[in-house]
Design a protein around this nucleic acid. Structure first.
Lengths: 135, 135
DNA sequence: ATTATTGTGGATATCCGTATCTATAATTGT
DNA sequence: ACAATTATAGATACGGATATCCACAATAAT
């Protein structure tokens, strides 16, 4: 139910970057200080986000991190996937490794379905524009 | 969003025990074989469930595990809590260590609230009677 | 070109969940 | 009392997520 530390770091960093103007780059160092996240660890997280196409990273003087596209076009699913992997697509409650189809469902299928749907909808419909902020 | 291995083992074991008659004890060894869970690891999980008052464990010949009370009186929250701890009570999306109150909410509060509520309701309203089964 | 700046990558350390092995305590049946 | 059965406890190993340190590559300003 709760995301890993890496995922949370990613969400917080992006929510903060999204409060800046489109062209303005944010320094990794400033991100780490503002969010109180170990700088060396955060840099790995940001690198992952850059590789997956969510962040645009530029080195050198006047470099930093910017969103690769408008915040309303970055779904939380796009952010979470590289860190949570298969866990971002929850399966059956009692057999998490299975896709959890409706046919041949396990005994917990109907009870669990509601949570799964709320979760999936949240990741697919919520964007950085919705959670943008500095906390 | 997905429970730990220990939690999943616990849920599967209880769902299977719940299919047996009230007085009938189930052997740990049989549980492990039926659910294909490492016996020594499962025994720790079952011991935790016994300590937390969900299972009644009896040693010796004709011993085994039985539900401590009727399956409709065992909420999934009672099962999950000892394993997931604070994670069973999800907090704020961007500040997971915080309670996530409505006042002074973080920027993700409203989007995240729906998922949190579905999750909390699931754990509080679903009982072993709802997920009982052998899968 | 040189230098300051800033992100990238590799090696390593630490911690916790998972898993295994072995010995022991408790209960039943004879 | 004895032996068989069954749960419980401790020590240990393993792997992945988390975290830290250090060297390097790329970019911009001068």
């Amino acid at each position: 139910m709760i995301f890993s530390a890496s995922t949370t770091h990613a969400l917080r960093a992006l929510a903060w970057i999204a409060t800046h103007a489109a062209g303005e780059a944010v320094l990794g160092r400033d991100l780490a200080r503002h969010l109180k996240i170990p700088p060396d660890y955060l840099s790995k997280v940001l690198a992952t986000l850059a590789r997956s196409g969510v962040l645009s990273a530029r080195r050198g003087a006047r470099g930093g991190y910017r969103l690769a596209r408008g915040p309303e076009r970055i779904r939380l699913l796009d952010v979470v996937m590289p860190f949570e992997g298969a866990r971002a697509k929850p399966g059956c409650l009692l057999r998490p490794e299975r896709p959890c189809r409706d046919s041949g469902a396990c005994s917990a299928h109907s009870s669990w379905g509601g949570v799964k749907n709320a979760y999936r909808e949240f990741l697919e419909k919520t964007t950085l524009a919705d959670i943008r902020g500095g906390m």
